[in-house]
Nucleic acid binder design. Sequence first.
RNA 1: GCCCGGGUGGCGGAAUUGGUAGACGCGCUGGAUUCAAAAUCCAGUUCUUUCACGAGAGUGCGGGUUCGAUUCCCGCCCCGGGUACCA
Length: 866
Amino acid sequence: MEYNFLAVEKEWRERWAKDETFKAEQNSTKPKYYVLDMFPYPSGSGLHVGHPLGYIASDIYARFKRHQGFNVLHPMGYDAFGLPAEQYAIQTGQHPAITTEENIKRYREQLDLIGFSFDWSRQVNTSNPEFYRWTQWIFVQLFHSWYNKKEDRAERIQTLIDAFEQNGNLQVDAASDEAAPFTAEDWKSFSEHDRRSILLKYRIAYRAETVVNWCPALGTVLANDEVVNGVSERGGHPVEQKKMMQWSLRISAFAERLLEGLNRVDWSDSLKEIQRNWIGKSVGAEIEFPIKDDVNKKITVFTTRPDTIFGATFMVLAPEHEWVKEITTAEHADEVADYVAYTKGRSERERMAEAKKITGAFTGAYAKNPINEQEIPIWIADYVLAGYGTGAVMAVPSGDQRDWDFATHFDLPIVPVIEGQDVSEGADDRKDGILMNSDFLNGIKVTDAIAAMLKRVEQDGIGRRKVNYKLRDAVFSRQRYWGEPFPIYYRNDIPYTIDEDKLPLELPAVDQFKPTEDGDPPLGRAAKWNWDNAAGKLVENGEGHPIELSTMPGWAGSSWYFLRYMMAGDASRDEVFVSEEAVSYWKQVDLYMGGAEHATGHLLYFRFWTKFLHDLGFLPFDEPAKKLINQGMIQAEDGQKMSKRYGNVVNPDDVIAEHGADALRLHEMFLGPIEMHKPWNTKGIEGVSKFLRKLWRLYHTDGVFTVSDDAPNKNELKSIHKCIEKVSDDMERFSFNTSVSAFMVAVNELSDLKCNKRAILEPLSILISCHAPHIAEELWKKLGHDASISNAPWPKLNEEYLKDDSIVYPVSFNGKTRFQLEMPADSSKDAVEAAALQHEQAQKWLEGNAPKKVIVVPGRIVNIVL
RNA sequence: GCCCGGGUGGCGGAAUUGGUAGACGCGCUGGAUUCAAAAUCCAGUUCUUUCACGAGAGUGCGGGUUCGAUUCCCGCCCCGGGUACCA
């Protein structure tokens, strides 16, 4: 009988579910191993064959770790809040909870077919109140915390209040919005309203008027990583810049630690590099330039090259800079006002599209170079960003291309300050060389000149060393329905948190999912969306206090979900977001598998929340995932992206119906290295199907299961141990494509040897069981085992069996292989050399001459140099 | 522009520390089995040249180091990803 994959796979799916084979132990003396996949957003179109690629790879590794005796946590869940379900709801009136539920059901069916070793008892669903109760709870902690720069950690807001009561805010070094200075006496005299307003500037979850990416079509704000090329990532709608009052999270306070932590995790270099660039650290100085006609007024610039200050021939302010109006002379007032109006009217898209267009206006004012008193004109231009540094730069056209372009366009002087600097065709930003035209820095190397200038700036009191980061605080509110409600109500416009024991604050019913007529978010439609704090419950609108109408963004739940999986279904699940016992046993994720597209979104926020929760003492680690692998994308066979739009989607269900789940798993791995993008290949699956049938035949004679208990011979042992060595090594390197070929080699060899011996076939089925678990379980059962193969110990390599009696040496002349020479394995170097030179073929190449040199690498090669 | 990856047969890819380039699979060619097909099995398959034995070339291109380079170094070209006035 041929292998009936349909029956076998169904049988094992059911048995694994019934026996809870992959349930992680909660109290275990075994070492733990945590394998996590990025959980999917359950979309309406279901999974295509590209989606499970990473899940298959992580599943193989999870199974391998089980064979090695680890207590493996390998969970799965759903990132269920999100825009598509809401867009669908707006169009159809169908509640997103219902469509989400249906989509989850479909996802689960598809996932189950593939034979993953997930522990479903721990599944999470971010849109479930049982889960988002804790997302809201973490938000409450973020609200009641501040960032203490002196201690370099997040702390409870009470330590800040204590500090204010003792010394006011003068001695406090916090990551905060600008707050006017006050003393302890002042603080004590403030009203509650004033105190709360001040504290809001310090909270890690704070509210502030910020310039946000507003998407009118979606009716919401978007985070920077949700905007791609000036349009929304989802839907491709135009995005404009708008000033709005929004909730933000103070991730920028963690910038340095987010950067430093990258050195302690085993993530791909490219991913770390993306995050480093996104965080964008630059070390330099702030230097003050007094204004010529008002020396008390100083413009502060940020520069990473203070050594080039003698090349600063003009100064540029962002059009939004607070002093533009004040310093502009009457003569240039109209021109400057026109330019400011022009830049305001430009959308983000236009700005990006016209990035090369050089525009600007002269203010008529001059600044004094604080080092040499030279007067330089002050311009405004939108190539200087208001939101970065100080919103003003000293322009050094000889060393900065943007300044060079600007100077060339407006005919401003360009002064080289480094010997050999060529500024005829463009700026020359060399970081080596000797300074010139630079007064006391002349003749000094760039690196030393930077140090010397920093010292001078600090001595003269005209500036300070300064580190800037590109990383902006994360806008945390969305004007949408399908997200976590903020556990916040407003008393006199001041936000207050809802008591922790009253959470979750569940999403209210609304008649429609659109914004209100007044332009309020959909939650503005809820009839009962006010809070009575004394009673601790929702009340009719008009009573109590209004509740926040925005909801949290899609990445809220995914920033901490990995912790929730650690909680088994025990009682403490309702008491804490994650218990101390659970987190001290499971600790960090050991292997995280997911797409690189989350580099600047999820993966940054996930690290940020972990650091925050660590600071507050909830977690014994501050990096969530020790190792991370980015699986590549599977493209359609035509090389395009797999998408409904192109009609080139391959559904795993169809592949499984035709070839089985084991074949799908093997084929996806066999396509190539896990991190690489690669096209799907429908034909290629025949190869792995054939392999599975051949494997089956190894255990069967004329369709009847036949295995012998005879002792294996040398060749058989060598074959299986070669496979053990190769596959064990491949597992540790996540090289799952090469292990598939190792299985094929072993099965081909054992078929040739007509081997049906238990001592060989038992370890073989264990080796294959991570990749092709269904067939392996069935063979294991036929071999007489009652228990699942998934806990069978991994076969042990015995190197004795790999050794050969003889070695075939390739003999090359001048590096070109000419013939083979078989020698006993224990032959000495000299014996190999002598045999090679005496070989009849050697004579032909030597042509009677003596070789110049003979190189013998024992066990490897012989090279004869003529 | 800048920063990361990558470039190997008709195709996907292998070669882990510098040591026989092309494992394994797909495709293709020929054969066995079969009434026929499916399935299975056997042989071949980098290119050029040769009836063949063999010989020559060959890992994007050009140089270098080395007895020996897909692997290390220098300079270019192309493809993919990230980022974009971040001073």
